[in-house]
Simulated scan of single mutants.
Amino acid sequence: MNFGVVVFPGSNCDRDVAWVTRDILQQPTRMVWHEETDISDLDVIVVPGGFSYGDYLRCGAIARFAPVLQSIKDHAAQGKWVLGICNGFQVLTESGLLPGALVRNRDLHFICDRIPLKIERHDLPWTTAYQKQNVITLPIAHGEGCYYADSQTLADLEAHQQVLFRYSDARGTINAAANPNGSLNNIAGICNRQGNVLGMMPHPERASDAALTYTDGLSLFKGLLGTKV
Rank of each mutant, 00 (worst) to 15 (best):
L138F: 07
N134V: 00
A141Q: 07
F165C: 08
Q133I: 02
Q152P: 00
P139I: 03
Q161E: 15
G145Q: 05
Q152G: 06
I136N: 06
A155V: 00
P139N: 08
Y167P: 06
A159S: 14
G143W: 00
C146A: 06
Q152M: 12
H160E: 13
D156T: 07
Q162T: 06
T137C: 09
L154S: 10
N134T: 12
E158P: 02
L138D: 03
C146E: 05
Y147K: 05
H142S: 06
G143A: 02
Y167I: 03
Q152T: 15
K132M: 07
P139R: 08
Q133K: 13
Y167W: 01
Q161G: 11
L138H: 04
Q133D: 13
Q152V: 14
K132A: 07
C146Q: 12
D150N: 15
I140R: 00
T137K: 11
Y148L: 14
F165R: 04
Q133R: 13
I140D: 02
Q161A: 14
Y147T: 03
Y147A: 05
D156Y: 05
T137M: 10
C146P: 01
H142I: 02
E144M: 03
L164I: 15
K132P: 14
P139A: 04
C146N: 14
L164E: 10
Y148P: 05
Q133N: 14
A155T: 10
S168W: 07
T153Q: 11
L138V: 04
D156A: 14
S151C: 14
E158N: 11
T153L: 09
E144L: 01
K132C: 02
R166T: 03
A155H: 10
A155P: 01
D150C: 13
Y148N: 09
A159P: 13
L157C: 14
L157K: 12
Y148I: 12
V135S: 04
Q161M: 08
H142Y: 00
R166L: 08
I136H: 01
C146K: 13
G145C: 02
Q162L: 02
G143R: 00
G143Y: 00
Y148A: 14
H142V: 00
R166H: 07
Y167R: 09
Q133F: 03
H160V: 03
Q131I: 00
A149G: 09
E144P: 00
G143C: 04
Q133G: 07
K132S: 03
V135G: 05
L154C: 10
T137G: 10
H160S: 13
Q131Y: 04
A155E: 05
